[in-house]
Write a protein that binds this DNA or RNA. Structure first.
Lengths: 340, 340
DNA sequence: TTGTACGCGTTATCAC
DNA sequence: GTGATAACGCGTACAA
């Protein structure tokens, strides 16, 4: 006979409201919603109707608390203003959504420290899985990941030691391959333009350097690395700076297509013929790159596929199944157009 | 003497673990973390240390359940591949984060139905607030919002009836203004190129139409609307189609800068002089637009400010304070460059 | 300044 | 196939 005294004004419809409404127990309603096959057809129909009419909305906090599963996955990417990661996010969403998982998106802004902060915060949600970009984390991030014991897949790069689940491609190789291509095309004074300088950029730069060194063509004069974020405008400015310090270069490997676009615009402005006087290559193969004048040579990266495969691997790990492989190399593809 | 039988294996450190560790009650630890000023200096220090050494991570589900506040805000945007919304998201994050709110980002993909689905799902998180794009929702979305009774701010557009909290600018006016500008520049056969055809695009189109009608210059021949998503490539294609159906146009109002870029590239390819033979104007003033040849005339939109102001308004609403105003018009700015 | 008692809404466990 | 009971981890309300 003890009267239930609600603390808050009237809360919203709960599972037991629905249960009371049709005279069954709460747990039965729970089952009808989560494991319909365990409830009789007739009852299930009545419950579904009641849910409709009462406008019942499950409470995830209660569910997470009781079941110790949050049905959410934390996804940490360096940037949302970079198409690369947005495409990857879209693929992750498409893959996880059908299985009932929500993404908790964290934008680390290319900062390992911010990544650590975000991870710490998102761990409060008890995520069932984690998708994180690359392998360059703070020590604290690594220990948080270790201590949490939550299935984690690393995206974009490959772990050479093959100890951590990962889906991506070799950043080094892709930089190497594009540079080799330019060398074989006959270019001899090939420059490298980079911004943002995140770990993947640096690895592509190493690939560039290795290829040139092998060919005996390397010159540090032709490298220009700017820590500020990439943009078309920055590309235009960097071309000017590059041509001051290395006026003789005959090709430029731009670390991404935004920079390459800026370089190309600036070439037009300075009446530098592309590719006759100066060849230009970009990276990532964005939408615009096929339409510039001349169209831009670039490296197409499997960003959607990375998101998809990483999410699939995570689903396997979360369900306790052993994934087919915990190291998936999706490669890259050279897209040759008229700018080289 | 009743033995506590844990359901799950060993769970992670909880509040009472920390409390036991230093011999205080759980609630004291809770207070030390959430309202430090209510706990004595000395104790607070000991608690902080214990939290560190035990690696305690709060459980948001439990917190949300006990307090009926989730400290999370749902943000629904039409797209993540559109800089406009990404910038807005960044601003929202910057504004909400210091107050301890997490964003739950939903990408509706320009679909009112998908928006409804996302809202329904995210409502399970008991968000403390909602930020949603525009006013064009399904009836179900509207009733969900109403029934939930959660503070909600609409972004990007303005509510003429002034009944719903909103932060944005007049899409109609901005389209009207850009068209007026072109008319005053002397252009007489002004075309309108649009893709995606979301509500804001359509309203800008109405502004375009109104301005031309007023001036007696309107011709439906010069409108080209393509429902598929905007892209640079699409811009290039649409120019070709437009010039077939209206070869005489002397200016083009592109509904966004991506399309405008494609149009400009295609003009170069077709040897159409810009702006001499054909003027081009875009919308949103993206980074690249200042660097094309010629630089692109566009309309700068206050997308960062919209995110910031919307978040501030929501914070006020969530805290029960009456916001200064529930209808904030942040305007737009014509950026005139050499393409017109 | 600190503690006790209890409930938030759901699911795991075990019984019927 | 369905239900009773207890727990999940934390914060509110009130007491000391």
């Amino acid at each position: 006979m003890s009267e239930r005294k609600p603390r808050i004004g009237q809360s919203r419809t709960t599972l037991s409201d629905v249960a009371d409404y049709i005279g069954v127990s709460a747990i039965t309603v729970s089952r009808a919603l989560n494991k319909p096959e365990l409830v009789s057809e007739a009852l299930r129909v009545r419950i579904d109707e009641a849910v409709q009419t009462l406008g019942y909305v499950p409470n995830r906090a209660a569910r997470a608390l009781a079941s110790a599963r949050s049905h959410s996955v934390v996804v940490l990417v360096p940037s949302l203003s970079n198409t690369v990661f947005v495409d990857t996010l879209a693929a992750i969403h498409d893959t996880l959504y059908p299985s009932g998982y929500q993404m908790l998106i964290g934008d680390t802004r290319y900062s390992a420290q911010e990544e650590e902060n975000l991870l710490r915060t998102y761990l409060e949600y008890n995520p069932d899985g984690i998708l994180i970009t690359g392998f360059d984390h703070t020590p604290a991030t690594r220990s948080l990941l270790g201590a949490a014991g939550i299935p984690t897949v690393h995206m974009m790069e490959l772990d050479d030691s093959a100890t951590m689940p990962c889906v991506g491609f070799s950043q080094f190789d892709s930089g190497y391959a594009l540079t080799r291509f330019l060398i074989e095309k006959g270019y001899r004074r090939i420059a490298f333009l980079a911004a943002q300088l995140d770990p993947r950029t640096l690895k592509r730069g190493e690939g560039y350097r290795a290829a040139l060194r092998e060919a005996g063509l390397y010159s540090p004069q032709r490298e220009l690395a700017e820590p500020s974020p990439s943009s078309v405008g920055l590309g235009a400015q960097l071309l000017d700076r590059l041509l001051e310090q290395a006026p003789d270069c005959d090709a430029i490997f731009c670390n991404n297509d935004d920079l390459a676009l800026g370089v190309m615009f600036q070439c037009q402005r300075r009446h530098i013929a592309v590719p006759e006087q100066l060849a230009i290559a970009g990276f990532n193969d964005l939408d615009a790159s096929a339409w510039t004048n001349p169209p831009l040579t670039s490296v197409a990266t499997p960003r959607y596929e990375i998101g998809r495969e990483a999410a699939l691997m995570l689903l396997a790990l979360m369900s306790g199944r052993a994934p087919v492989s915990t190291r998936v190399d999706l490669g890259y593809r050279l897209v040759v157009r008229h700018s080289t």
